[in-house]
Every structure is written in structure tokens, then in C-alpha cells.
């Protein structure tokens, strides 16, 4: 019975459109040691995948490769069918939302409000829409009282929420979040869970990297386990 369901689901996966695909992907930093080794992977639209694995296994590296921040040493990457290495980073950013493991790296404006509005503003949204989206997200992530605060002075969890809000303001088609729960208390993790669930209903696919077991349980539809640069386990729940 369980097996039957499993097969049916697999069938459904087959019909799903691929969001990101990696073919024989390898990567080494300047240290010349292969961190990602001949990796093959398909991530589907509308599917939530959780990437697990020990520290130093290569999760962050893989996430950065899929976002185009790092360039593969060999192999191919496709984003919605387009060759990812040919796409300029801003084109990728228009489709993909990415949040760094350390939120500090992603904050560059003078206030929380501007941080969230930045993408919309320079992509030509009108003032009304910008303020509507920004207000809504600040309220959602409970950072309204920080609207004028300097982002780099915030606490880790506040920075995290600002980064998440800035990503979501752009309505990405796919999300890659690297350990999004660090610095967040249970109440805020619940909020994040709710937000991610809504996105899932809307058909947004996501890759979540996390060590937080309850967060993983709450969100995972498919679990990838990574060890020493290779996917050793790929499991549909």
C-alpha cells in the first residue's frame, strides 16, 4: 500500500516541471580539492526539498552553485531550462530567492524599510506597491518597530527576518534558504513555517538547508542527505 502510494507520487513527480537541474556537477575552491563531486540532481517546481548533512559536507557550496554565486568547475546547471552559467546573476535573482547562512553578507542599505524595498524600487515598481509590500512583510515578520533601524546593528535573528522579507518581496519562483532558522525563536519559526506553507500552496518550490529537526519535519516533502560532496540519500516522504 505504502509502496503503491510512493509509486503514484513518483509518477506525479515525473510530470512535474523541473526547476533546477544539475548534471555531473563538480566544484573546487581555490584549494583545488573537489568539494562537490559529479553530482546529479533535479529539483522540481512546487516541491519542498530539505538538504541535510554533516558540517562541512558541502551544502552551502551546493546552494551557492545552484544560485550562480559560485561557478561550477565542470558539469552543467539548468535553471528553468536555461543554462545557468550563461545567465547573469541579476537574471537569476529575478527568479530565485536566496538567503545566505550568515545574514550579515546580504544587508547593504541604511534602514530595514529600504532593505526590503530595494529590489522592487530598482526594478521599477511604483511607490504604492513598494510601500504595500514592505509594510505587509514587516508586519508578517514582526520587524515593524525596526523600520528605521540600521540593518547591520540588528540582532542575528532580526537580520535573518529582514533578509527573508527582502527575498520574499520579489516573489521568487524558487527559494533557496541556507539555515533560515538560526537566531529565530520558536514563535518566529512558526511564522516562517506558515509563510513557507503558503508559498507551497502557491506552487513555489524550495530548497531548505537546515539542522533544525522540527523545522525539517514541518516542511520536508523530499529529503536529500549530503555527505562529502555527494548526495547519498534521496527520499520522498
Amino acid at each position: 500500500m505504502a509502496c503503491c502510494v510512493c509509486r503514484l507520487e513518483r509518477q506525479a513527480q515525473m510530470n512535474k516541471a523541473i526547476a533546477i537541474e544539475a548534471r555531473n556537477l563538480s566544484f573546487a575552491y581555490q584549494t583545488k580539492i573537489n568539494i562537490i563531486k559529479h553530482l546529479n540532481l533535479s529539483l522540481y517546481k512546487g516541491e519542498t526539498v530539505v538538504l541535510l548533512g554533516a558540517n562541512g559536507g558541502g551544502k552551502t557550496t551546493l546552494g551557492k552553485l545552484l544560485t550562480g554565486i559560485l561557478k561550477p568547475s565542470s558539469g552543467e546547471l539548468l535553471l528553468f531550462g536555461e543554462n545557468l552559467s550563461m545567465l547573469p546573476l541579476f537574471k537569476i535573482g529575478q527568479k530565485l530567492g536566496y538567503s545566505f547562512q550568515n545574514p550579515v553578507q546580504q544587508l547593504f542599505t541604511v534602514s530595514v524599510e529600504e532593505e526590503i524595498a530595494f529590489g522592487l524600487k530598482y526594478r521599477g515598481a511604483n511607490a504604492e506597491e513598494i510601500s504595500r509590500v514592505t509594510e505587509q512583510l514587516m508586519k508578517l515578520f514582526e520587524i515593524e518597530h525596526l523600520r528605521d533601524a540600521f540593518p547591520l546593528n540588528l540582532s542575528w535573528g532580526e537580520k535573518r527576518r529582514v533578509v527573508l522579507a527582502s527575498c520574499l518581496a520579489l516573489q521568487p519562483e524558487y527559494l533557496i534558504l541556507d539555515e533560515p532558522t538560526t537566531g529565530l525563536d520558536q514563535k518566529r519559526i512558526d511564522i516562517l513555517n506558515r509563510v513557507l506553507n503558503n508559498l507551497r500552496q502557491e506552487g513555489v518550490g524550495m530548497l531548505l538547508i537546515s539542522h533544525n529537526q522540527s523545522f525539517v519535519r514541518e516542511n520536508a516533502q523530499r529529503i536529500l542527505r549530503m555527505e562529502k560532496g555527494a548526495i547519498v540519500d534521496d527520499l520522498y516522504l
Binding site: 548533512g53 558540517n55 538560526t182 539542522h211
Partner: peptide, 12 residues
């Protein structure tokens, strides 16, 4: 200060 947050289960 949240030193366990980014560690995997075994390391924690």
C-alpha cells in the same frame, strides 16, 4: 551565544 545553532546533530 547560540553556538549550537549551525552544528549538525552529532556535533551538537
Amino acid at each position: 551565544d547560540e553556538t549550537l545553532a549551525q552544528l549538525d546533530a552529532a556535533t551538537q
